[in-house]
């Protein structure tokens, strides 16, 4: 967890060597960016298509879809949260969540 404290720690002479951290961070970020380079950004389309599939069965508000991606070294998590309306269509929708996860090797 990076905090503002690290900023000061890094300036002290006894700060631990940081070159290894630089290497690890670069390896992770570049692994992801290189994948994105050959493939176009699929998230917007994935979101559209998922919403379309779910909408075939349940009336949902396309605005109430949240897509979150957490990029990690060994595993990434893709979380898609779609808010479903309540059983009675007249009433305001009750919050319910559908989750889907997908892991990609880093």
């Amino acid at each position: 967890m990076m905090s503002w404290l690290d900023f000061f720690r890094a300036r002290k002479p006894e700060a631990p060597p940081s070159a290894n951290q630089a290497k690890e961070r670069l390896q992770i970020v570049l692994a992801h960016e290189r994948i994105g380079r050959t493939r176009e950004d699929f998230l917007p389309r994935l979101q559209q298509e998922l919403v379309a599939v779910v909408a075939r069965y349940v009336a949902i508000d396309p605005g109430k879809v949240a897509v979150n991606l957490d990029r990690g070294g060994d595993m990434s998590t893709l979380a898609i949260e779609i808010e479903l309306p309540g059983p009675k269509t007249e009433q305001p929708p009750r919050a319910a969540a559908g989750q889907q996860q997908q892991a990609t090797a880093g």
Partner: peptide, 9 residues
């Protein structure tokens, strides 16, 4: 001193 990325890296 481990402060800078190595050439090999």
């Amino acid at each position: 001193r481990g402060e800078m990325l190595k050439l090999e890296d």
